[in-house]
């Protein structure tokens, strides 16, 4: 295979250049049953599609996906509760990683072959030109490692939250099964993890402690006592937020967006404790209690930082 440095650099650009085309990171969740939106090819993706990408139903570009992943990762790390799992985005990300790994393998094999041929003809062996050719490859590998790290950190963060709130998740699942089924909230693997972990943990508790207690004290999710046994996420946690605004940047279309006297657009939220109205001006940064901005976060109109 003939590898040109231009090709490698071009590929590098499509994957890592941060063009701010950020759509709503949660829009992905709404249409996760639509398998046709799934996007499988990354290399031949035309640049022109970026412009026609304003609607959320069309296929997001790799840049958009990457930006969204970073936003979701940051949200997940900062939010006290478990956020919905981006099914489509993750499928696309994973398949792209796979492709990129395969491509890297092919390229590096090519390099090894080259190195081999140069060492046989050239007795000095270590050819500096050859090493320079390796540079883009190294960049691509570094980039791949970074994306893997982000995903790893994202999943691990979610798993730790699943462990922490396993009883709470079960409670909300039982209470309103029809509204937000857990299957949409978690990925398939996370669901398996959640179920089997709570099962073996309960078994441990049962075997060591609970079965020795009187029968009316054996419940693990007893909220009737003096202290509730189910840990809820800390809704009052303070978070830093940045106001993004509607994803298409057309401010008139967002019904809850208000235009101020000075021509600035803002969202209005009410802090219940203080009975105070706060204007969240677009592109500014605030510190708020999580529950105040929860709805805006779910709609992707603010992000946590």
């Amino acid at each position: 295979m003939d590898v040109d440095i231009e090709d490698i650099l071009a590929e590098l650009n499509t994957d890592s250049t941060a063009v701010d085309q950020s759509g709503n990171p949660f829009s992905d969740i709404n249409n996760n049953n639509n398998a046709s939106t799934l996007y499988n090819e990354s290399s031949s993706y035309p640049e022109t599609n970026l412009k026609t990408n304003a609607t959320s139903t069309s296929i997001p570009s790799p840049q958009q996906d990457y930006n969204n992943l970073i936003i979701l990762w940051r949200n997940e790390r900062c939010a006290p509760e478990l956020l919905p799992y981006p099914h489509n985005l993750m499928t696309r990300m994973l398949s792209r990683i796979q492709e990129q790994m395969e491509r890297l393998e092919i390229i590096s094999m090519d390099f090894l072959g080259q190195q081999h041929s140069t060492t046989t003809t050239d007795t000095t062996g270590n050819n500096p030109v050859n090493n320079n050719n390796m540079l883009p490859l190294l960049c691509m590998e570094a980039e791949l490692e970074r994306i893997k790290f982000v995903i790893r950190s994202f999943i691990r963060c979610r798993l730790s939250k699943i462990d922490k709130f396993s009883l709470y998740l079960r409670q909300i699942n039982e209470e309103n099964e029809s509204i937000s089924p857990l299957q949409d909230f978690l990925s398939k693997d996370e669901m398996i993890y959640y179920e089997s972990h709570s099962e073996i943990l309960l078994k441990l508790f049962n075997d060591t402690i609970l079965k020795h207690l009187p029968p009316n004290m054996q419940a693990i999710n007893d909220n009737t006592g003096t202290v509730p046994m189910i840990d809820e996420p800390d809704w009052n946690k303070f978070v830093f937020i940045k106001v993004i605004g509607p994803q298409n940047k057309i401010f008139n279309t967002d019904p809850i967006l208000i235009k101020g006297d000075n021509g600035k657009w803002y969202y209005e939220v009410i802090i219940p404790e203080l009975q105070e109205r706060v204007e969240l001006i677009i592109d500014s940064i605030y510190v708020m209690r999580y529950k105040v901005i929860k709805d805006l976060l779910m709609e992707g109109k603010v992000t946590l930082i």
């Binding site: 994973l94 190294l138 490692e145 970074r146 995903i151 950190s153 999943i155 691990r156 398939k188 693997d189």
Partner: peptide, 17 residues
């Protein structure tokens, strides 16, 4: 499906390959 990610890998961001 997360085989490529290596979930139990390092949780500090990679600096160099």
């Amino acid at each position: 499906e997360l085989t490529d990610i290596d979930l139990s890998g390092s949780l500090t961001p990679p600096r160099e390959i």
